[in-house]
Simulated assay, not measured.
Amino acid sequence: MMLKGPWRRRRTLCTTHICVVFGFFSVVWVLSLWSGSSSSPTDFYRKYYRDRDWTTTDELRGLVYFTSSFPGRSLDPRDGHLPYTFGKTTRRDANVWKEKIRAIDTVAPVVIFSKTYCPFSTRAKELFAKLDTQPKPLVIEVDLREDTDIVKNELSRLTGRATFPNILLRSKSIGGFDDVQSLYESGQLLTMLRDGHIVVHGA
């Protein structure tokens, strides 16, 4: 039955309003995705791809695993197959990444995120060379990577520390050179290393 007069006009206006509202929210959603991916790709990736079951420690291990195992690859948070944030297609893939990154604490219990030109990074590396630890520290020279800023931002997010060096002991940041030097002078550093099953040959 054909609607005539005011009823037809009301139906037309209602349909128009629905289309306008739907279109408005669609545009807002698309713009939010676009602005997220262009202005802050790391935030965009975390928002849409990050597995919320991962702990901060898991993410930090993943960052170490990626930067040390794939030196020729740069972090792109929009890539769906990065181990550091555990992008994956299935739950099984995520479990495989967990197994690999959780071995980091055994393979490299001490990690030094360093910059080659930073004098404090140099002193930190010299201190651990003097201690002659086994395993030896894993040194990641962040300034030699193309994704320096992303790595720095992720370290800041995960450890609360945005300066270098950033020294990790079993996936926990113990600070920079000044912090580690103080721990060394007080004798606490040797205790922490030995408690972490790290052999210290030096003094």
Rank of each mutant, 00 (worst) to 15 (best):
W7E: 15
R10H: 08
R10K: 13
T16R: 03
I18V: 15
V20N: 10
V21E: 10
F22I: 15
F22D: 04
V27D: 08
L33I: 06
P41G: 05
T42Y: 10
Y48L: 11
Y48P: 00
D58P: 10
D58W: 07
R61H: 06
G62Q: 13
S69F: 05
L75F: 11
D76L: 06
L82H: 09
P83A: 06
T85R: 15
G87D: 11
T90L: 04
T90R: 05
R91F: 00
D93I: 05
D93T: 05
E99F: 09
I104C: 10
P109Y: 03
V110G: 12
S114P: 07
Y117C: 08
A124P: 03
A124M: 10
F128D: 05
F128C: 03
K130I: 02
D132G: 03
D132A: 13
T133P: 09
Q134I: 08
Q134S: 14
K136M: 12
E141M: 04
D143W: 12
L144M: 13
L144G: 09
R145D: 04
D147Y: 12
V151K: 03
N153R: 14
S156G: 13
R157W: 11
G160V: 09
A162C: 05
T163H: 00
T163L: 01
I167E: 06
L168G: 10
L169I: 09
S171D: 09
G176K: 08
F177M: 06
F177G: 05
S182E: 06
L183A: 11
Y184A: 04
Y184V: 01
Q188M: 06
M192F: 05
R194A: 09
G196F: 10
G196V: 01
V200G: 14
V200C: 13
